[in-house]
């Protein structure tokens, strides 16, 4: 079986992000990394092909520097990379992103398309479902475990109220949650071999996408504002029942 994994390069979530007032976009001039959420997707894809044969192709839309993220996925074990990088796609909204990714995915041989549930920088959380819609195949979302037998994919979905077991017939779009697996470190040999692996660099025209990006983008960020300052925390002074009050507070917030 062949798997396509959608990946994205994002500003390192370990350093505080900043919005650029001139473009209304997240600044991307600092350290950029393969979205940690996507590492679970790549690992899930690799595990599927290790079990069932076939290969993993990673597809990414983003600026030129995104090549580093594609290379990391190749170093982890993906067989092929596709990076769609074009000035006209700067500031794409979720639907444009989904159209570009879906067009690139259509050119691949695939049984499963894996994504994270959302990107760590944009957080729209709708791209997986849009890709499924555009490809006209089922979307199985928020999977915390996955298995495939024949042409049937079974996933456990984590929901607020419990765990659903869902089945779908391949091909399918699958979004996986963080923690679905433990992503491997790329091997050093893999890193050195990544440059030799096939890499496609199609432009929008190669994907028959003359009408996406630029002025045709349906959604625009018109303004940005700073997030409200975090309110001062509450300090509980221990007068014999601090533990109980902390437990009540956590229970109230549904943390425990």
């Amino acid at each position: 079986m062949n798997v396509v994994v959608c990946i994205k390069q994002v500003p390192d979530p370990n350093s505080p992000g900043q919005l650029d007032p001139s473009t209304h976009l997240l600044k991307r001039d600092g350290e950029l990394v393969l979205d940690p959420g996507d590492e679970f997707g790549v690992e899930a894809g690799l595990q599927l092909v290790e079990k069932h044969g076939g290969q993993v192709t990673v597809v990414s839309m983003g600026p030129e520097r995104g090549l580093d993220a594609v290379r990391k996925a190749l170093a982890m074990g993906a067989a092929k990379g596709v990076l769609i990088s074009d000035d006209s796609l700067r500031g794409s909204d979720a639907l444009t992103t989904a159209k570009v990714l879906a067009a690139a995915i259509r050119k691949q041989d695939f049984d499963v398309v894996i994504t994270a549930t959302e990107s760590t920088d944009g957080y729209t959380g709708v791209v997986p479902q849009m890709i499924a819609g555009l490809l006209d195949i089922p979307a199985v979302t928020f999977a915390k475990s996955v298995s495939v037998e024949g042409d049937k994919l079974t996933a456990q979905r984590q929901t607020e109220t419990g765990i659903e077991v869902v089945e779908a017939t391949l091909p399918v779009v699958l979004s996986v949650t963080a923690g679905v697996n433990e992503p491997r470190y790329p091997s050093l040999k893999g890193i050195m071999g990544a440059k030799q692996k096939p890499l496609d660099r199609p432009g929008p025209a190669d994907l028959n996408l003359e009408d996406v990006g630029g002025a045709s983008t349906g959604q625009r960020i018109t303004a940005i504002d700073s997030a409200p300052e975090r309110a001062a925390g509450e300090i509980i002074k221990d007068e014999g029942e601090a533990a109980k009050r902390i437990v009540d507070f956590l229970a109230d917030k549904k943390v425990i």
């Binding site: 491997r184 470190y185 091997s187 050093l188 040999k189 893999g190 050195m192």
Partner: peptide
């Protein structure tokens, strides 16, 4: 698993073919 033991040795002897600086 990372391949650290093979890192600086030539592929002809089964190494990873990395350089000494790496």
């Amino acid at each position: 698993r990372l391949g650290l033991f093979a890192l600086p040795f030539a592929e002809s002897v089964g190494g990873a073919g990395g350089d000494f600086l790496s």
